[in-house]
Design a protein around this nucleic acid. Structure first.
Length: 259
DNA sequence: ATGTCCGATGATATCGGA
């Protein structure tokens, strides 16, 4: 079984790019983030035509998550338990479903903006709530995976130059402690291999020619229970999918599991 | 020139967010 996660940066802007990738990569399950469309505007029929069931959660211009599956899609759940709010609202950043026997979460962790910003505290609260939901879910589902845009680089080596991230989010100890909470409840990170160069970056800013210069970050992550991690046969960041016109600023992460 | 892009506004350019 092949399962992937991809921050698509507007699913409707990315229809052609995404459908081409689905046909070439042939994933069985895909977690999407930043779909940027309301639940009812999700291009469900396009995915049906490609053989995928789908479920989406979105409000419009911002955020939005979805799951595509061609191995079943059941027991859908929206949002974390007691998901922290931003400006009084629960944002569409988490959706779960059971696909091919795996409990799958598609997640879009808040960006944080700057370490001084309220959004950064929101991000930390969100990571804590995620670990709590993960703990209760994995008690019921031994085959659990969390996939998505975590907006945190796990180590200094997961950004192109740590010196460029002084006073920035994504690399602080507190954010990384948020990831450690996931490990403390029994999840392990599945680290992808790079297809090119030495590091498996998953995001390159559109600005300043970051992609051609390979000024990237590894912030799209996969966490799994030991039962799932033991089945991993391969994992890679597909930087090829970041190429070309009308690409997302993120690349997909692909994980292969033994059946 | 943030060497950019997205979606929304009340546009026909500008803005917030990333």
């Amino acid at each position: 079984m092949r399962i992937a996660t991809w921050n698509i940066n507007s699913v409707n802007r990315r229809i052609e790019h995404l459908s081409g990738w689905l046909e070439s990569a042939q994933p069985d399950v895909v977690c999407l983030q930043e779909t940027k469309c309301a639940t009812g505007d999700f291009p469900e029929l396009m995915f049906t035509g490609l053989g995928y069931e789908s479920v989406a959660l979105g409000t419009g211009a911002w955020n939005g998550v979805a799951i595509l599956s061609r191995v079943g899609l059941d027991h859908v759940r929206d949002n974390l338990a007691e998901q922290p709010e931003w400006e009084g609202k629960v944002e569409p950043r988490a959706i779960a479903a059971t696909c091919g026997g795996i409990r799958v979460w598609s997640l879009y962790i808040p960006n944080g903006r700057t370490p001084e910003h309220d959004h950064y505290q929101y991000k930390l609260r969100w990571l804590k709530a995620l670990s709590e939901t993960a703990a209760t879910e994995l008690a019921v589902h031994p085959d659990l995976m969390l996939l998505g845009d975590f907006n945190v680089a796990p180590t200094d080596d997961d950004v192109y130059d740590i010196e460029a991230f002084r006073d920035s989010t994504h690399v602080t100890d507190q954010e990384r402690a948020g990831l450690k909470l996931l490990e403390s409840v029994g999840l392990t990170e599945i680290e992808p291999r790079p297809l090119k160069y030495d590091r498996a970056f998953t995001f390159w800013d559109y600005r300043q020619l970051c992609f051609p210069k390979n000024r990237g970050m590894r912030i799209d992550l996969v966490y799994a229970t030991p039962a799932v991690a033991d089945r991993v046969t391969d994992a890679y960041a597909d930087r090829e999918a970041r190429k070309g016109k009308s690409a997302s600023d993120h690349a997909p992460v692909v994980v292969d599991l033994q059946d």
